[in-house]
Simulated assay, not measured.
Amino acid sequence: MTRAHQHTPHHAEGVHHPGHGHSSPEGHEHDDTGQAEILDLDAEVLSEHIASITAWLPLRSGPRRIVDLGCGTGAGTFALLDRFPDAHVTAVDTSAGHLQLLREKACARGAEGRVRTVQADLDSDHWPDLGRPDLVWASASMHHMSDPGRTLGRVRELLAPGGLFAVVELAGFPRFLPADAPEGRPGLEERAHAATKGFHAEHVPHRGADWGPMLTAAGFTVEAERTVIVDIEGARSEAVGRYAHGSLRRIRDVAAPALDAEDLAALDELLDPDGPDSLLRREDLAVRTERSVWAARRA
């Protein structure tokens, strides 16, 4: 097994934010529109990350049939189409709204003939016909499965002989503020994330799991593993502020019961789009996170 560590400083490299087709980035249910905004910002700010992973995949030949499980609004789908110009992607998600946006993007790119969308709940007892893909891509979706072992087994059965399964998962949610920010409440961001741990332990217990042993138990051989460290200066992209604002806004209600009044007030000041301390106005933001990737074949 190989492990590559990539430090990607100061430029927009892609990260697939959590939740594609399941719950929101912080495990809290929101409407499709709000979640789609986060997924689209994720794709915009961190697109180079996704491209770097697709280029790294240990493929024996260019895949012609790809399935994107938990595709969201299409960040992975379009990165795969760009990387593999002869491929066709079947994009699977629970959200009809996300799939509609994905189809609209495909039409705008002139790629509608290379994309098929399928609305499906991957936790259901019966999956729709997804063909026999050469590559299955699951980015930030596997940790939402109620029975990951069963889902991995189904992916194994789905793959064509010699096909590759790429699992991209969250080593941690993005952080945006410096440790000494905001003024008067330093460390607020870490406390807000800590305040959501109980919720996540209950609702997304597989977040942050080591998928290597689970893949092996499901009948895969893990051929390569990679950890990607992302560090992007906010000054490089205006979208970083919107990405930070949307991400912290979506954890606010989950974190609120465990935050003291001063922290909650400071968080609301950061989230006030018109306030002087708004995340949308700050010049000291960055995107710091990690993603872990496993590439596996049927044993």
Rank of each mutant, 00 (worst) to 15 (best):
D260T: 09
A36R: 02
D68H: 08
V67A: 14
A91K: 03
D274S: 11
E104G: 12
F173I: 13
V293N: 04
E283C: 08
A261Y: 13
D32T: 13
W56Q: 13
R236V: 15
R236W: 10
G187A: 02
P133N: 13
D210T: 03
V230E: 01
R236N: 13
V115Q: 09
A138G: 15
S146L: 11
P273Q: 15
S141I: 11
E26S: 14
A75Q: 06
E190K: 12
R154P: 00
A224W: 02
D42L: 03
S139R: 08
L46A: 04
D274F: 03
A235P: 03
P273T: 07
P18I: 02
D263S: 10
D277Y: 01
F176C: 06
R297P: 02
F220T: 11
T117M: 08
A299L: 00
W56V: 14
P273Y: 03
A111L: 15
A194L: 11
W56Y: 12
A224H: 13
P182M: 06
V92H: 09
G131P: 14
D272L: 06
S52L: 12
T94I: 05
A160D: 12
A12R: 06
D123N: 13
E183N: 08
I229D: 13
A106G: 11
H28A: 14
Q35S: 13
V240K: 01
L152Q: 04
I66H: 09
P161T: 01
H143M: 14
A192Q: 04
P25H: 08
D272I: 07
G153R: 11
R291G: 04
G113L: 15
A217R: 06
M214P: 05
E169H: 03
L135H: 09
S247V: 07
H143G: 09
G19Q: 08
H88R: 13
R288S: 13
G74H: 09
W56G: 14
P273C: 04
H206A: 06
L270Y: 09
P18D: 05
T8P: 06
M145V: 05
R156C: 06
T2L: 14
M142R: 08
A209V: 04
F176L: 07
L122M: 12
A36L: 01
R154D: 04
R154E: 05
H98P: 03
A181R: 07
R288M: 06
A12W: 04
W211C: 11
E190A: 15
L280S: 10
G275I: 05
A296W: 05
A108I: 05
T289W: 07
D277C: 11
K197E: 12
W294S: 04
R175W: 01
H16W: 01
F165Y: 10
V92C: 11
A195D: 07
D210P: 00
H17T: 02
A79Y: 03
R297A: 11
A296T: 11
S139C: 09
H206P: 04
G62F: 10
P9D: 11
L259M: 08
V92E: 09
C71L: 03
E157N: 12
G187K: 04
A43R: 06
R297C: 03
Y243K: 02
D123S: 04
G27M: 03
V15C: 00
H144Q: 15
H98I: 01
A106Q: 13
D210Y: 00
A218C: 07
R207C: 09
G162K: 01
G74N: 11
D253H: 12
A55Q: 15
T2D: 15
H126Y: 00
G246Q: 03
A235M: 07
G212R: 08
P25T: 10
